[in-house]
Design a protein around this nucleic acid. Structure first.
Lengths: 245, 245
DNA sequence: TGCTGCCATATGTCCGGACAATCGGACGAC
DNA sequence: GTCGTCCGATTGTCCGGACATATGGCAGCA
């Protein structure tokens, strides 16, 4: 194979990670075509001067990503599909930016309030505890896209209105050293109330896409709860789901 | 610890899997409380008569599920959160059955047709190729919940109308030996057309939740494409998203 | 021809060990 | 008192090997 595989033992990057990145790049650029066998692990390990467990770890990470399939007695194949990325905790701001939509944000509310019952329950706090409360209008090309209402536990992050208008909430949390880990989401639809219609530039009774989400960090602590409403003509949710057997 | 941990070497079940199941059960029933340390891997391995790699494999599988967190230099902790299950490729039929809603299905169309452009593209077939086409109305307690329109590649499965009325499409595919692996989903909302409103028992212009999905098996082959519309008053999408770093 | 059983092949599981990187607290220097 | 350093603890990475098990093709037999 002329894949240019080879690891650098002087690098602090783990060997299995170097290999998995190279394999992923080879798949990405088409050097490993869908359906083709990867060659057996033993020989691959010998060729690269690595042990089999290390090679397996590299391959396993790509299997987890859905790029490869292992079959006992057969070999490891490249998946032939439109699988691009697995799913991620999507950030509306980043999604819009990636789509070249020039996102903008108008901060409508940014203060500390007693937590409403629903937010307190989601964040695991007592009802009436103080929480950060942020309401934002998200725009693209100057047009309203979504209305975002969020609650955060106190002391987690100090939210400057200026920062909130420059970037997304997730990016701010990550920048504050919070490692996001999982989220419970609920997506639905309903007719716009008069107030919602006014805010988003729709007619009353127009369909809206709604999302409720609680986000947790890597220790399982709830770090954010929010209810969002989207204009369905301007936004829809795109997922890539993976099943783990 | 009185966790009752111990493996059976006579069982064909892999040791790491036995251990991970026991740990998961211990977490589930509260014997391992959120935030508590799991005890170091070396000692745990010694106590169980296993090697450290085997114990690590068991722990890793629970980390992947989001039940445990590892911290170098600290130990492995139980996540303290409402994290129950990771996300799965949800089946509407099974979801309803699990919620005790007694799902029902009316098959409206079940035949072979030339593939519409969108379905052919999603399934990776030429436009106009023959495909299975199924249209169903999904009910709960006799009330319409969703309208499901699906296309499947030919020869994959023979779909009996009787079977379709008794269970869900995913269950039929799994029963035919197809291993579902991933799906691309798009969720949105729009106003009901007159025909849609009629089918679902809503008023024209009422908000509907829409889902478009292409499903792939473990080799990356597209095995299903469908467009669904849901009554938002009766159904919403619930997810548990996990981020892998 | 068609079925059966064997066998090479590849991944799956498991072991025991070694060293590195990181975390948190204890200790000592300033 | 505060800061930096050291050190024990724990996970992270990596090795080399062993045997188990599922797969698919081939040869032999009915």
């Amino acid at each position: 194979m002329a894949l240019g595989l080879g690891v650098d033992r002087g690098s602090p990057v783990p060997l299995y990670f170097q290999l998995s990145q190279q394999l992923e790049a080879a798949i990405e650029r088409g050097a490993l075509t869908p359906g083709s066998l990867l060659g057996n692990e033993i020989e691959l390990a010998a060729r690269l001067g690595l042990s089999r467990p290390t090679v397996r770890q590299a391959i396993q990470s790509l299997v987890d990503k859905g790029l490869l399939v292992r079959r006992r007695g057969v070999g490891t194949q490249v998946v032939h599909s439109q699988v691009k990325r697995p799913l991620e905790l999507s950030s509306l701001y980043d999604d819009l930016a990636a789509a070249g939509q020039r996102p903008g944000t108008t901060v409508l509310v940014n203060d500390v309030v007693p937590a409403p019952a629903e937010a307190a329950a989601a964040l695991g706090l007592g009802e009436g505890s103080e929480v950060h409360h942020v309401e934002r209008l998200r725009l693209a090309h100057g047009e309203p896209i979504a209305y975002l209402c969020n609650y955060l536990p106190p002391g987690l992050l100090d939210l400057g209105t200026r920062q909130l208008e420059a970037t997304g909430l997730y990016r701010l949390m990550r920048g504050a050293g919070i490692t996001l880990h999982s989220a419970r989401q609920s997506i639905g639809a309903r007719a716009a109330t008069a107030a919602e219609a006014e805010r988003l530039g729709e007619d009353p009774g127009a369909p809206l896409l709604t999302m409720r989400r609680a986000t947790y960090d890597d220790t399982g602590r709830a770090v954010e709860y929010g209810t969002h409403t989207y204009r369905p003509s301007r936004y829809s949710f795109e997922f890539q789901l993976l099943v783990r057997p």
